[in-house]
Design a binder for these strands. Structure first.
Lengths: 135, 135
DNA sequence: TAAAACTGTAACATTTTAAATTACATATAA
DNA sequence: TTATATGTAATTTAAAATGTTACAGTTTTA
């Protein structure tokens, strides 16, 4: 799971922030996403690990936010669910005897680091509440 | 090929801009990347289609830049080789009967569009010459 | 005009990764 | 004590990226 993590987590959090006082079940959440509940629980495990949500086991159990939606930024979710944005690397290690091959990955990385800084900055300005209000 | 396209193309162009007057063979280029020449030719086909480089077939053939490196921006290469940066979508279509499910993809897309604008803007400020000079 | 050294591309094979599912242990409410 | 949840490991399936083979066409050079 890489490509869907951010989207699924944001979807979960959006639903949780619509019902901040209820424990929502993974089955219910999965229903909105048309996804397998186990997948949802995996993402929730990640959110719990980072103290964004809490879960209650057993009957009538489920998950709810631990933090007000206005205090969660999309950058927080980004960092929790996404390694790094990159425009890619070649799979193969380049030729270290070529001056370009020797430094290409380091120069790409530095470019990608700059891109990630910009993205983080932008996402930091958007709260989960902002996002939730688009629905 | 998705993840490596931008990196491989930029690598190729960096080499071409180091030797702007020579036709470099796909074998030579592949050697710097430790890659199969066919893969290199595939990316070159894309560059040709967009009039960034020209190739000469036959003995002593190869590829060279059609445009000065200072006039090629990384944004141009980005647009030629990368669909769009995204933080991902869920694979499954969400539930259209849920207010969140109904609009989640459109709201994600709009967020990702903003991100891409920022990236394009940033890459537009870096020329292939700028990049080549880091080596 | 034939050999050598290239490009161009389609077709296929392999590898990797994401995504989905199954299975089952554990917890809690009623 | 039953029904309804979560938690998580293990496995399977599907999709996508990556790599390779094969071969036709082009150009240079002797």
């Amino acid at each position: 799971m890489l490509s869907g993590k951010f989207a699924i987590t944001l979807h979960i959090l959006t639903l949780l922030s619509k019902f901040p006082d209820e424990y929502l079940s993974s089955e219910f959440l999965a229903g909105s996403m048309n996804l397998h509940p186990v997948l949802v629980r995996k993402e929730i495990a990640n959110l719990k690990k980072n103290n964004i949500v809490e879960s209650k086991e057993g009957k009538n159990g489920g998950t709810k936010l631990l933090i007000p939606a206005k205090d969660i930024t999309l950058d927080t979710i980004f960092k929790l669910t996404f390694e790094k944005v990159t425009l890619g690397f070649s799979k193969k290690d380049p030729n270290p005897n070529c001056p370009v091959g020797k430094k290409i990955n380091q120069n790409l990385q530095s470019l990608y680091d700059d891109i990630n800084d910009k993205i983080s900055n932008q996402l930091h300005g958007i709260s989960l509440m902002d996002f939730e209000q688009k629905f």
